[in-house]
C-alpha cells in the first residue's frame, strides 16, 4: 500500500515543477530574450515546440521523463540527462561524506547528552546542536575556508581535486565519476590524498547541519527509552547508568534515526546546492546555481525534477529498511 504512494508523489512533484516553471513563459525567451532578434527567437521557440498548447507539451514532457529524457539545455545545448549523470556522482559523493560526518559527530554526542541529561554537558551539546542548525551551510563553509585554507593553509580552498590529480584520473579506462573510487583505481596514494583533502571541508560544512539533527534525535530518544520499564528493570538489577545508555537504550533509539535519514535527504540536497556553490564542488547543486544564473529553465527543471524523484525514492527505500529492522513497523 505504501509502495503505491510513491507513484502519485513523484507524479505530483514533476507536475508541480513543470507547471510552476512554465507559468513564467517559455524557457527560450527567458534564457535568450534580449540577445537574439525577435524573429530568430520566435523561430527557435517554434523549433523547440514551445509554442504549442501547454497541455500537449505537458504530456510530451511526461512521456519523455518516463523514457529518461529530460530535454536539452538552452544555453549550452547539452542533453540534461548527460548533466545529471556527469554531475550527479559528485553530489552523491558529497552527500555520502556529509552523512558520514553527521553520523560520526551526531550519534556519539547525542548519547553523551542523554547520559548527562540536564547537566552542563547536556546544555553545551544542545546549544551546539542548535548552532549546527542555525549556521547556514554557506557561512559555515566560508568560515572553514577562511580558517583552514586561507589562514592555516592546510586544506585546499575549493574544487574536487587539484589539476594534476584530475589529469591522472581522466586517463582511467573505466572511470566512475566518483573521485574517491577513481583515485583508488589510479593506485597513486597522492591522488587519493588530494581527493580526500578536497572533500574534508565541504563534508564538514554540510555534515554538521545534519549532525545537529541526529544529536537531538538520539538524545530525545535515548531519554525516552531510559524511562521505559525494561530499562527500569535493568537498573534495579544494578546495571550501571553508563551501561544502560550504551546497551539498553541505544539500539531502540536508532530506529527513528533511520526513518529520519529519509527526511534528511531533502535537507541534505538543499544544503548540497549551497555547499557546492561555496566550494565550487562541481555537482548538481553547483550546476543548478549556474543554470539559474543563466536563466536556463529547461536545465533547472530537469535537475529539480531529478532531485525530487531522488528524495521520493529515498524516503520509500528508508521506509522499507525501517520495516526490515523493526518488526513492529508494518505497512
Amino acid at each position: 500500500m505504501r509502495a503505491l504512494l510513491i507513484i502519485p508523489t513523484v507524479f505530483i512533484l514533476v507536475t508541480l515543477v513543470f507547471v510552476l516553471m512554465r507559468s513564467t513563459g517559455d524557457p527560450i525567451t527567458a534564457a535568450l530574450g534580449g540577445q537574439l532578434p525577435p524573429d530568430q527567437l520566435a523561430e527557435r521557440i517554434h523549433a523547440a515546440g514551445f509554442d504549442r498548447p501547454i497541455l500537449v507539451q505537458y504530456f510530451e514532457y511526461l512521456g519523455q521523463i518516463f523514457t529518461g529524457n529530460f530535454g536539452t539545455t538552452i544555453t549550452d545545448n547539452r542533453p540534461v540527462t548527460d548533466i545529471l549523470v556527469k554531475y550527479g556522482s559528485a553530489t552523491l559523493e558529497l552527500a555520502f561524506y556529509a552523512l558520514l560526518v553527521a553520523f560520526v559527530v551526531g550519534i556519539p554526542l547525542g548519547l553523551v547528552a542523554a547520559y548527562f541529561r540536564d547537566k552542563g554537558q547536556d546544555a553545551a551539546l544542545r546549544i551546539f546542536a542548535i548552532l549546527c542548525y542555525a549556521t547556514p551551510v554557506f557561512f559555515a563553509g566560508l568560515l572553514l575556508k577562511l580558517i583552514f585554507s586561507v589562514w592555516l593553509k592546510v586544506l585546499p580552498v575549493a574544487g574536487r581535486a587539484s589539476t594534476s590529480a584530475q589529469l591522472q584520473m581522466e586517463v582511467l579506462p573505466n572511470k566512475t565519476g566518483l573521485y574517491t573510487i577513481d583515485a583508488i583505481m589510479t593506485g597513486n596514494p597522492a591522488v587519493l590524498g588530494d581527493v580526500l583533502a578536497h572533500a574534508v571541508l565541504p563534508a564538514i560544512a554540510l555534515g554538521l547541519l545534519t549532525a545537529g539533527v541526529f544529536l537531538r534525535l538520539v538524545r530525545t530518544n535515548v531519554i525516552g527509552t531510559l524511562a521505559t520499564d525494561y530499562v527500569d528493570a535493568a537498573r534495579s538489577r544494578g546495571v550501571s547508568e553508563y551501561r544502560l545508555v550504551q546497551k539498553h537504550a541505544y539500539r531502540p533509539a536508532l530506529i527513528p534515526i533511520i526513518t529520519v535519514i529519509g527526511l534528511q535527504i531533502a535537507l541534505l540536497l538543499g544544503g548540497a546546492v549551497l555547499t557546492e556553490t561555496t566550494f565550487e564542488w562541481k555537482g548538481l547543486g553547483f550546476m543548478l546555481a549556474e543554470y539559474l544564473q543563466a536563466r536556463d529553465f529547461v536545465a533547472v527543471q530537469g535537475i529539480v525534477a531529478l532531485l525530487a524523484v531522488i528524495v521520493a525514492l529515498t524516503n520509500f527505500i528508508v521506509d522499507i529498511i525501517a520495516a526490515l529492522i523493526d518488526p513492529r513497523v508494518r505497512y
Binding site: I12, A266, G271, V304, L307, A308, N315
Partner: peptide
C-alpha cells in the same frame, strides 16, 4: 499534495 510538497527540498 501536501505530503509531496513537504518531501521536496524546501530551498529548491
Amino acid at each position: 499534495v501536501c505530503d509531496a510538497i513537504y518531501a521536496f527540498p524546501s530551498l529548491l
